[in-house]
């Protein structure tokens, strides 16, 4: 077994090496695949904060993924059509600036997570799973029945949004943006996990009553974690929409929630780089097994079953020993 820190560095290097090689070999499709993996990893890192650290099995994280996607779609489509979003007492216009879109995606997803979390965290266990799933599906059906933004057909954005000083239409540059965001978020989540907040969240996951008797407000703690988790997943949604230049109600569907959860289970629950490995392996399986058969999900199911039965720590857990955060 190797040290988890060393393994994480190897994973980051691989994540850079693959698109760099593809760039040299002039294979933009491979760069796009790597970008997809990075964006899915970001969504997984978001869910992993709630699920891995907090023990909150949310089956409705697609709601935040979709919210981020639609935040991008709505802002960009209005900018594209030179049509203000709101023209009344004051004017709200669309934008094709990525940083502005990210801020809107993060804030709207965080607010949605605050609303859903405030209600769903009053339940636990299977009820929590069902309530989060119900919220996710609610937004899925709402998006389907919202003709102003494409309804069931979704919304196309013809030109990728802009980032100052970069050509976002160049696959390698867009990958660079997504990878930089993933690294920043990983750094942030790592610091958070090592902070008293993260440790208390982990402690409350293990023993809620014990946490309360040391003065931890478990509900508030979980709500904050849930909101941060939703905001990160929302940011991933905005990037995913920009990658595809398309948003549709599918981004809200329970299948997306399930996929994000699969990344975490594959890579390793509560491991910082678990969702990164999980998302990369998932994309690889989707690409290679998907080329062999339309029923590639059967193979994926078998792999997942094997993981759950024989490798509870996921791929990271099989390769690296869990490290404690502090040496005192």
């Amino acid at each position: 077994m190797i040290r988890e820190g060393t393994l994480n560095i190897v994973i980051l290097c691989l994540l850079v090496a693959v698109p760099a090689y593809a760039y040299v070999m002039n294979e933009p499709f491979t760069i796009t695949l790597a970008t997809r993996a990075v964006i899915f990893a970001l969504a997984g890192v978001g869910l992993n904060l709630a699920l891995g650290q907090g023990g909150l099995v949310s089956f409705g994280h697609a709601a935040y993924f979709g919210m981020g996607g639609y935040a991008m779609g709505i802002l960009a489509s209005h900018a594209q059509n030179y049509d203000p979003i709101f023209d009344g007492a004051f004017l709200i216009e669309g934008t094709n600036s990525m940083p502005v879109i990210w801020v809107v995606a993060v804030v709207s997803s965080a607010l949605l997570a605050l609303l859903i979390g405030a209600l769903s965290l009053r339940t636990s266990g299977v009820y929590f799973i069902m309530v989060t799933l119900a919220f996710g599906q609610m937004f899925y059906y709402f998006a389907i029945s919202w003709p102003a933004y494409g309804g069931e057909d979704g919304l196309s954005i013809y030109v990728r949004n802009q980032f100052p000083g970069l050509n976002t239409l160049d696959p390698i540059q867009f990958f660079g943006i997504c990878f930089a965001i993933l690294c920043l978020v990983l750094l942030f989540v790592d610091r958070l996990n090592k902070s008293p907040f993260g440790l208390a969240l982990n402690g409350a996951h293990q023993n809620e009553e014990r946490a309360r008797t040391v003065g931890i407000n478990v509900y508030k703690l979980r709500l904050v974690a849930f909101v941060i988790s939703g905001a990160i997943t929302g940011l991933a949604g905005a990037l995913f929409a920009d990658l595809n230049r398309f948003v549709s109600p599918t981004m809200f569907s329970w299948a997306i929630s399930g996929e994000i959860m699969i990344f975490i289970i594959l890579g390793g629950v509560a491991r910082l780089f678990g969702p990164v490995v999980g998302a990369a392996v998932y994309i690889l399986l989707e690409h290679f097994l998907g080329g062999l058969s339309d029923y590639w999900f059967i193979y994926l199911g078998a792999i997942l079953l094997g993981m759950v039965l024989f490798a509870k720590g996921g791929i990271i857990g099989k390769l690296a020993k869990k490290e404690t955060h502090h040496g005192g």
Binding site: P196, L199, N202, G203, Q206, R210, T213
Partner: peptide, 25 residues
């Protein structure tokens, strides 16, 4: 009110340092 519960019940997934750090006021 500081409780040392029956059966100890530490946060087993956290290190000694982390157990103390998470509870510090």
């Amino acid at each position: 009110l500081g409780l040392v519960p029956e059966g100890r019940r530490c946060f087993t997934n956290l290190s000694v340092y982390e157990n103390l750090y998470a509870s510090a006021r």
